[in-house]
Design a protein around this nucleic acid. Structure first.
Length: 458
DNA sequence: TGCGGGTTAAT
DNA sequence: TTAACCCGC
């Protein structure tokens, strides 16, 4: 008789999580079976773009395999599905496998109530973060609002070492729904699953880590770890990565590069922590920094937004990024900052619209990371970039794509423009006829944005 | 992860 | 004259 349900939520991993492994071991000691459950939430299904869904399905297939083909997949609302599966299995407890969706606490609580009525307990088994969101508080007992003190507390706090995946998990079989046929992806997606995540991570630690500090800002090279998608779908745990970073440093990896990478993981945990304490930040600005009438409206908003989303703003670095997103479901971090700044500060469109577009297309799209990084760029977050820091799409391109390689890769109309001249096609003697003129004048819109910012302070 | 205006120092 | 650097918004 199965007595334990492993409810896999955002974190699909089986290995490395000490609490999850302990729960599996305990079930085995009790001579109990383990039901592995994944609820394919219809709400997610209807909103996500093709590439995102295709990746999720690939990741689920890999998980199914890791569960010896016994993963129970059910479609529907977790509030209904989880209690129903518990009843069928006759389970006493449900382990939420490293869930901890910081913005989903209330939803979990609803499931908890439903489980209580069915005589089963919900047990939080670990977290998808090295330090669970909500755990760290300032000396005065308030949540952290500033990144640097958060990171210091996070480093001081430390985290458990990864555990080893248990052998021979006694999976129980229950009927599940077949995985639906996903939409055809429009992009060449990264390989999904724990094995692929580990391989990518080890390649990066071996070949990329020592260049990380300088290389991560160069979209024309493969300088980032590209681990975001694996972290998002729980195919690797940040604790595993932190342990490997420490080992790499011990083996001689440059400490600056290791520190920078660790700091990026800390940003991820900071954003999850902020959203845990302020779930409203998912849709609302934490601080209002410009007056309500600053935003572009009506037909012009639609036209400008559509040009941005399609990668036809006439600013090559921006357009390259937006087209990379459409083509691959991913965009280089440096370029994400530049395109986001362009939408909010040059086109004066609310960050929420951009965040929604990103969530629909990014295979690594994660609500806490996406919404709060947008708020960081928009200057509306707690520890955000100052509003007057407005990215210049031309100089950013010239600085981080100095030879124009990245632009030419994603904007074929500019394929014949050599070198860095590609960042300002309007200055060419004969600009390519099929590439748009700049949608707006950056210098002008920058002044408009700064005036709006000033008005809010008056 | 900006920019403009100022200072400074090398030429 | 210029570029590197610093400062405040």
């Amino acid at each position: 008789m199965p007595t334990s349900v492993m409810w896999f939520r955002r974190d699909l991993r089986l290995a490395d999580n000490p609490a999850l492994v302990a729960a599996v071991e305990a079930a085995r000691d009790d001579d109990a079976d383990v039901v592995g459950l994944y609820v394919l939430d219809d709400a997610l299904w209807s909103r996500a773009g093709a590439n995102r869904l295709a990746y999720l399905l690939d990741s689920l297939r890999a998980l199914e395999e890791a569960c010896d083909g016994r993963l129970v997949i059910r479609r529907g609302d977790p509030h209904d599905v989880v209690p129903a599966v518990v009843r069928e299995a006759g389970a006493r407890e449900v382990h939420v496998a490293a869930s901890h969706e910081p913005y989903g606490r209330r939803r979990d609580d609803g499931v908890e109530e439903a489980l209580g009525r069915d005589g089963a307990a919900l047990v939080r088994t670990g977290s998808a973060y090295a330090v669970s969101p909500g755990r760290l508080l300032t000396g005065s007992g308030t949540p952290y609002r500033v990144f640097t003190p958060f990171r210091n507390a996070w480093l001081d706090h430390g985290w458990p070492s990864p555990a080893r995946r248990p052998h021979e998990i006694p999976w129980a079989a229950l009927d599940g729904d077949d995985l639906p046929d996903g939409p055809e992806p429009t992009a060449h997606l990264p390989r999904a699953g724990e094995e692929a995540a580990r391989r990518r991570w080890h390649d990066f630690v071996r070949d990329g880590l020592a260049e990380y500090d300088a290389g991560r800002d160069r979209p024309d090279r493969a300088g980032t770890s590209a681990m975001s998608v694996h972290l998002r779908w729980g195919e690797i745990h940040p604790r595993t990565m932190l342990a490997d970073l420490a080992a790499a440093q011990h083996d001689g990896a440059p400490s600056d590069d290791v520190a920078t990478f660790r700091s990026e993981l800390a940003w991820r945990e900071f954003h999850a922590d902020v959203l845990h304490h302020r779930p409203a930040a998912r849709t609302r600005s934490v601080r209002v920094v410009v007056p309500e009438d600053s935003w572009t409206t009506g037909e012009q908003e639609s036209r400008w937004f559509d040009a941005w989303a399609a990668g036809r703003t006439g600013y090559p670095f921006v357009d390259a990024g937006m087209r990379q997103l459409l083509a691959t479901g991913w965009m280089h971090n440096r370029v994400r900052m530049v395109v986001a700044s362009f939408l909010v500060k040059d086109l004066h469109v609310r960050w929420q619209r951009g965040a929604e577009h990103f969530m629909a297309h990014l295979v690594d799209g994660d609500v806490s990371q996406n919404q709060l990084n947008w708020q960081w760029v928009a200057g509306s977050g707690f520890d955000a970039a100052p509003y007057f820091r407005i990215f210049n799409p031309v100089t950013q391109g010239e600085k981080f794509d100095p030879d124009g390689v990245y632009v030419r890769r994603w904007v074929p109309e500019l394929g014949d423009v050599p070198g860095r001249a590609v960042h300002q096609p309007w200055k060419l003697d004969a600009p390519p006829a099929d590439y748009p003129e700049p949608l707006v004048d950056h210098a002008h819109e920058r002044r408009v944005a700064l005036d709006d910012f000033q008005r809010a302070k008056d």
